[in-house]
Structure formats: structure tokens, C-alpha cells
């Protein structure tokens, strides 16, 4: 299993630990995702999909169990190492694009490189322009997020997630707020990038139509994996 990009073993997550309202949201998840795999994460609302994705994306720490990314056990990593790993290896697409309103589309896409290398450079700009071109937004490169439509914003967010050519793409309902046509476009973009770079993708979606177009579907019910096919 050396080509597993992520590997979860008995992973749990509880909120408000140590208080009377302590609730366990994830109850021992075992899951692995191989390089190049394109998987959908589905399940009813409140089943813990976002929580699971955030933990895999190193935005939150699990309460128990093991999480390895690229073969490294994340429990052993320091805060700084976690931050670096998150920046370099993971591209995250949020449900609500979460672009920086003060920066243009181009600058938003450049931002992961700016953070990783400390300052903007020509390479970051060239890559960002290329990605904006790939998502069909080259003409809008200098617009602020507020000047773009919802679908355009989400496409910028995808371009940003791809900026450092991460080994793993995590997308939390990236098409949740978009019409079917736009959603299909966004989905196709992710799929194409997955084919091009052989990165692993885990995409949360409520849309069975989209889930059916994935290599694999992971179903989460009440914090447990129900089926994996």
C-alpha cells in the first residue's frame, strides 16, 4: 500500500471533549485513497462528511485513530510541519469558494505559491494564468471575487487548489450552490486535472448523478462508513 495518498485507521472525532455536551461525530473511520483515485464522499446531512474532509485536509485534528498522508503519520508532526504539509500537498476546495476579497482572481490563484515561496514570482504568475485559462477565466484574471459570478468564483477556487499541483484534492460540495450545467463543468475540470496529474481526489457531493461518475463512492452514515463501492 505504498501508493496510498491517505490512510485512515480507526479515526475518531469528538467535539466539546471533557464537557457534558461531548459528542463523537466520527466513530472509527478506516479509509485509504490511492494515487490517482477519484472518489465521491456521500451521506446524509450531519453525517460528518465535512468534519472528515477537514481532518483529512489537516484543517482540524482528529481526537483518536491514525491519519497518514503520503505515508507520514500526522500525529507525530508539529504545528509548523502540519501547516507546511497542508500548503504543499493538499488542495482544498470549499463549498463557498472562500476567495480573499481584497485580491484579484489571479492573485488568489497565486496565493498558495506566494505563501509557499514567501513572495510572488514570475513562475507563480505564469502557472496561475495557465490555470485560469484552463478554467476559462483568463479574461477575468484581474477582477476581484465580488465582480465574478458564483460559478466563476468556484472555478477560481479550483484553480487555486491546483496551483501547487498537490498530490491530494479535497472538495467539500464544490458544486453545491451551482446550477446543473455549471456543476457539470466544475466536476469535469476536477476530473480532467485528476487525469492529467494523477492526483487523488475526494469530493463531497449530494448529487447521485455526479457520484456515479466517480471511480468510487464512499458513503458515510452517522459518522461510520456504510458502504464503499
Amino acid at each position: 500500500m505504498s501508493d496510498a495518498v491517505i490512510e485512515l485507521a480507526g479515526l475518531t472525532k469528538a467535539y466539546n471533549v471533557g464537557t457534558p455536551v461531548e459528542t463523537e461525530v466520527l466513530h472509527g473511520i478506516d479509509l485509504s485513497l490511492a494515487q490517482g483515485e477519484f472518489a465521491a464522499l456521500i451521506g446524509p446531512s450531519g453525517s460528518g462528511k465535512s468534519t472528515l474532509l477537514n481532518i483529512i485536509g489537516l484543517l482540524e485534528r482528529p481526537t483518536g485513530g491514525r491519519l497518514s498522508i503520503g505515508g507520514r503519520d500526522t500525529a507525530a508532526l508539529s504545528e509548523a510541519e502540519i501547516t507546511a504539509l497542508r500548503g504543499r500537498s493538499i488542495g482544498f476546495v470549499f463549498q463557498f469558494h472562500h476567495l480573499l476579497p481584497a485580491f484579484s482572481a489571479l492573485e488568489n490563484v497565486m496565493m498558495p505559491a506566494i505563501i509557499a515561496r514567501g513572495a510572488p514570482d514570475d513562475e507563480a504568475e505564469a502557472t496561475a494564468l495557465q490555470l485560469l485559462d484552463a478554467v476559462g477565466l483568463k479574461a477575468h484574471a484581474h477582477k476581484k471575487p465580488a465582480e465574478l459570478s458564483g460559478g466563476q468564483q468556484q472555478r477560481v477556487a479550483i484553480a487555486r487548489a491546483l496551483a501547487l499541483r498537490p498530490r491530494l484534492i479535497l472538495a467539500d460540495e464544490p458544486t453545491g450552490n451551482l446550477d446543473t450545467h455549471t456543476a457539470d463543468d466544475i466536476f469535469a475540470l476536477l476530473r480532467e486535472f485528476n487525469r492529467q496529474t494523477d492526483c487523488a481526489c475526494l469530493i463531497v457531493t449530494h448529487d447521485p448523478r455526479l457520484a456515479a461518475r466517480c471511480d468510487r463512492t464512499v458513503r458515510l452514515v452517522d459518522g461510520r462508513l456504510a458502504a464503499d463501492c
Partner: peptide
């Protein structure tokens, strides 16, 4: 706060 979270999610360290 939200923007700080986004920057952190993209790999910005606490020091940054």
C-alpha cells in the same frame, strides 16, 4: 477571521 482561516488553509504559518 475568515480570511486568516483561508490563508492558514493554504499553508500560511502562524508566524506569517
Amino acid at each position: 477571521q475568515k480570511e486568516i482561516g483561508i490563508l492558514r488553509a493554504m499553508g500560511a504559518s502562524r508566524a506569517m
